[in-house]
Design a protein around this nucleic acid. Structure first.
Lengths: 197, 197
DNA sequence: GTCTATACCAAGATAGAC
DNA sequence: GTCTATCTTGGTATAGAC
């Protein structure tokens, strides 16, 4: 079937590059992702790949974005729950290359001053994730699972922060159980209301 | 006074370079630290600076190491307490450039495969920090401040992870209060014993 | 042992041919 | 839309002056 319009071949190829990149990084791990690696993998030249993304930063940001889309198969990103967060962290144990890519790009986005594609992406992503988790915590409060004294936004930021930080520690020492630790944090928030007489 | 031995001029100059780097990054912020920036700042050529450190990675690792030494003015690194952690995070609010450098180097160390100077540094550092915090939590348990059911090592990892993750969120959105959030986490662990009837 | 100068290589960005 | 060629920047390796 012949495709036409702005989303025909171009978008399809973009998606193909991203999925191929996800596969490679997932399988072969990740060691300082270069545009060349991706280009070789999809049988294209460096500028050929960049043509579809504009820059290295935009390319790797798109890869992480695509991963989020794939992962969100089950849940929609804006109804993301604490259980989803824990499940995601547990799943990440099986794709260290992608965790490493996430870690690397986070470092670049937060440090390389100017407004970059990745910086925008992560800022938006944290807004979305923390926002959704805040709602989840609020719901837990309504259901009597979390003490009403707690600030849901603070809990949401802490859960998000812990999952990021645990991934860093896990990359350096894979013997730690990220998901179990994160569950313990959630359990602490759940069953430990402050000032209980 | 003439200096002699292996620690004379060499060590002094090394220290001078590191302190100058700390000052610059603290003041002017950090934007993708290059060796050239440091070299210009200390009035030296690129290879001149590298002569004292061997590689870019080793240079920036040494900068973070030096920062730890300076910060540890009060406490010794192996008797690091939860209060020290919170105080450090609060202090970091005043030096965003150094937080950014820490974030950037963490990303590189965790992702660029092979064993690098920075990877060793961070692995050791987490071992040390988590180890010290584990002791601190254990002590809190002895004093009846933390429930005995909890695993001190898990709490220590979570506190460390949260402080890292909060710094990432803060770099992207400086309006959040990292120290307050971290205090809330510690308070949750302190006053919320599980299974309390 | 300390540093400059220089050369070199890898990687991202860009221009222009097809 | 994709390539080749080129430019720039950043890290690294070597030679040699002091």
């Amino acid at each position: 079937m012949a495709q036409r319009g702005p989303y025909s071949k171009s978008a399809a190829l973009r998606a193909q590059i991203l999925d191929e990149a996800l596969r490679i990084i997932g399988d072969n791990g990740y060691t300082g992702a270069t545009v060349q690696q991706i280009a070789d993998a999809v049988g294209m030249s460096k500028p050929g790949v960049l043509h579809h993304f504009g820059s290295r930063d935009a390319l790797f940001t798109a890869i992480l974005q695509r991963r989020d889309e794939v992962n969100a198969g089950g849940y929609s990103m804006d109804s993301f729950t604490v259980e989803d967060l824990i499940a995601t962290v547990r799943h990440n144990t099986t794709v260290p290359g992608l965790v490493a890519l996430y870690s690397a790009l986070t470092g670049e986005a937060t440090s390389h001053g100017e407004l970059s594609t990745s910086r925008e992406f992560f800022a938006d992503r944290y807004r979305m994730v923390v926002g959704a988790l805040t709602e989840a915590v609020r719901l837990a409060q309504v259901n009597g699972l979390v003490d009403l004294d707690r600030d849901p936004a603070v809990i949401a930021r802490l859960l998000t922060a812990a999952s990021d930080g645990l991934q860093t520690q896990w990359l350096l020492d894979p013997s730690i159980d990220m998901a179990a630790d994160l569950e313990e944090l959630w359990r602490t928030v759940l069953v430990g209301p402050p000032g209980r007489p």
